[in-house]
Design a protein around this nucleic acid. Structure first.
Length: 257
DNA sequence: ATGGCACGCATGGCGTGA
């Protein structure tokens, strides 16, 4: 079972790259974030013609998530259903085989002095309850997506410079850590403990790829029973090097069974 | 020291991303 996550920064702009990537990599599931398209304009047919089906949720120019699968994704639903703001455009989940997949686009936060940052911290806090309500750590559960948190100093190219950024503050890392403590293993780190592994490279820097000036803010985390089945997890930098790339690049995990 | 680029929405720049 191969499962990937990719923030595409507009699925309509990134469709050729995504379709090529699907063809070359043949994942069982590809979780997308920042599709930036309303449901009625999602390019569903293009995925069907590629042999995949799509579950998606979006409301226009911002946010938006999707799960692309070869086999039908079951029990699809969206949003955090705890009575707070549902935020359907940032969370989509479903069952694939014996794996529960939760694909999220965690709010970025804009700035530490902005309401969006409080919302981000609250969102991560709500996720703890969400996982507790719907899942158990004894079953295979996979949480992935653009989680907008670099968990440690190993996960940014210049920790001193990035200190205080909404994706790297102590409190956002703690908030993320509390979700992880619900019962998740960072699958990338299980296979790659070394520094310099990143999933995001800002459009604005020069030579960011060559100089490896990235951030690791996209993640695949699983409960222990699924982590035990993981045989590989890696970042695929190739799509970031193409013409008209996303600023993120895919993260892939492979599991036995 | 601290820019910069891309996107959607909308048509002239703005809000957002990280």
């Amino acid at each position: 079972m191969k499962i990937a996550t990719f923030n595409v920064n507009s699925i309509r702009s990134r469709l050729p790259i995504v379709l090529d990537w699907l063809k070359q990599n043949e994942p069982d599931a590809l979780c997308l974030q920042e599709t930036r398209v309303a449901n009625d304009a999602f390019p569903e047919r293009a995925f069907e013609e590629a042999g995949y089906r799509a579950a998606f949720r979006g409301d226009g120019g911002r946010n938006g998530v999707a799960i692309i699968t070869r086999e039908p994704l079951e029990n699809v639903s969206t949003g955090i259903d705890d009575g707070g703001p549902r935020d359907d455009d940032r969370l989509i989940r479903g069952t694939l085989g014996d794996i529960e997949i939760v694909n999220t686009y965690v709010p970025q936060g804009q700035g530490v002095d902005k309401p969006a940052y409080r919302y981000k911290l609250e969102w991560l806090s709500r996720l703890v309850g969400f996982f507790g309500q719907h899942y158990t750590v004894e079953k295979p559960v996979l949480w992935c997506g653009d989680l907008n948190v670099a968990p440690t100093e190993l996960d940014v190219h210049d920790p001193k410079r990035i200190e205080g950024h909404v994706c790297f503050t102590p409190e956002v890392r703690e908030a993320f850590g509390r979700v992880v403590d619900w019962g998740f293993v960072d699958v990338l780190r299980k296979h790659h403990p070394e520094p310099g592994v990143y999933t995001f490279y800002d459009y604005r820097g020069r030579h960011v790829i060559e100089q490896n000036k990235g951030w690791r803010i996209d993640h695949i985390l699983t409960t222990e029973p699924l982590a035990e089945r993981s045989v590989d997890c890696f970042v695929d930098l190739a799509p970031r090097k193409l013409e008209k790339p996303s600023d993120h690049t895919p993260l892939v995990a492979e599991f036995e069974g």
